[in-house]
């Protein structure tokens, strides 16, 4: 029951967060830009035409009515009509999200095990050269903007070695492995950014667990080192890492905007970029809100995993 209360509270929190985010997106997309009709029709359009269009679009109504209609429609899957494509936004967003998920998945599948492994190896070699290399290296690549690491990786693997394609645009009808081949290079900059965070969390979790009384007890009662690490240390060490992995989803998506632009990949990031370039506000708002929802879902999933894995929360010791 305790676990349920914990999750309900987290769910309520993320709903509040999503509501506030939607208000910000609404203000940014529909209030700040000013006269929508004028923006669409251009500076030379007739004033009556502008007013008529504003009326059709509903932007002459009170703000809270506009917000209510907008969010209600959004929740029902009607994300508005793109200014540029003159077509409903939703299908574009759904398709782009699918593409982005593929890219994010490749990055995640690579970075989660390798990042954790890196952190564990660093912790087991605490303050030795291997630890220094992993920690410092991880930290340096984490702070670099994705497009900078992206450009350098493109130069190395795409231009000089010619091992990997420099644009993530595979031929139509390409199979799984061909797609994967095209996605490796774009996922590498995301990998590098996340590697540092995950390795650092795994490392400090490991250090703490290795230093704990239960580990000492396990060693002293004569368990083999392998069992101590697998059954006692890792289980406790990786809990905080799970939370970090989920919070990084948001940043992963932020990185997608840049990476997808750099590699010309048709995901949610490049959808947002194109919409921003063309001042296509309905598309932009839908893209950003979708990212907010993905982020909220990822955070909830992490809370769920965390609470299932952590007996202190599972058994209600937190309250």
């Amino acid at each position: 029951m305790a676990i349920l209360a914990f999750l309900v509270r987290r769910l309520a929190l993320s709903l509040v967060t999503l509501f506030l985010l939607s208000v910000m997106v609404f203000l940014g997309g529909q209030v700040l830009p000013g006269n929508v009709g004028r923006a669409i029709l251009g500076p030379f359009a007739d004033e009556r035409a502008v007013e008529a269009l504003n009326h059709t679009l509903g932007v002459d109504r009170p703000l809270f009515v506009q917000y209510g209609t907008w969010i209600w429609n959004f929740l029902q899957g009607d994300m508005g009509t793109s200014y540029i494509f003159r077509a409903p936004v939703a299908p574009f967003v759904v398709e782009a999200l699918g593409h982005s998920m593929k890219l994010a998945l490749v990055a995640f599948v690579l970075v989660v095990p390798i990042g954790i492994l890196g952190g564990v190896i660093a912790a087991l070699n605490l303050n030795r050269p291997l630890d220094r290399i992993i920690s410092l290296g991880g930290l340096s690549v984490t702070v670099l903007p994705e497009f900078v690491t992206g450009i350098i990786l493109i130069l190395i693997f795409g231009v000089w070695l010619r091992w990997l394609p420099i644009a993530a645009a595979w031929p139509k009808g390409a199979g799984f492995f061909t797609q994967l081949y095209y996605l490796i290079l774009p996922s590498l900059p995301l990998f590098l950014v996340l590697f540092g965070y995950i390795a650092r969390m795994a490392r400090s979790g490991m250090i703490e667990a290795l230093d704990s009384d239960y580990t000492r007890t396990a060693v002293l009662k004569g368990l083999p080192w392998r069992t101590v690490i697998w059954r006692h240390v890792l289980r406790n060490a990786l809990l905080p890492t799970i939370t970090v992995i989920a919070t990084q989803t948001g940043y992963l998506i932020g990185g997608l905007v840049v990476i997808e632009t750099l590699f010309r990949y048709q995901g949610i990031g490049s959808l947002i970029f194109t919409a921003a370039r063309g001042k296509d506000f309905p598309m932009l708002e839908a893209g950003i809100l979708t990212i907010g929802i993905v982020y909220a879902v990822a955070t909830l999933a992490a809370d769920f995993l965390y609470s299932v894995l952590n007996p202190r929360i599972r058994l209600g010791a937190e309250q």
């Binding site: 940014g28 948001g250 932020g254 905007v257 001042k279 506000f281 955070t299």
Partner: peptide, 14 residues
């Protein structure tokens, strides 16, 4: 909850 770059993008476009 949202990456700064994306918030900034929205505000700068607006």
């Amino acid at each position: 909850a949202i990456p700064v770059v994306i918030i900034a993008l929205l505000a700068i476009v607006a």
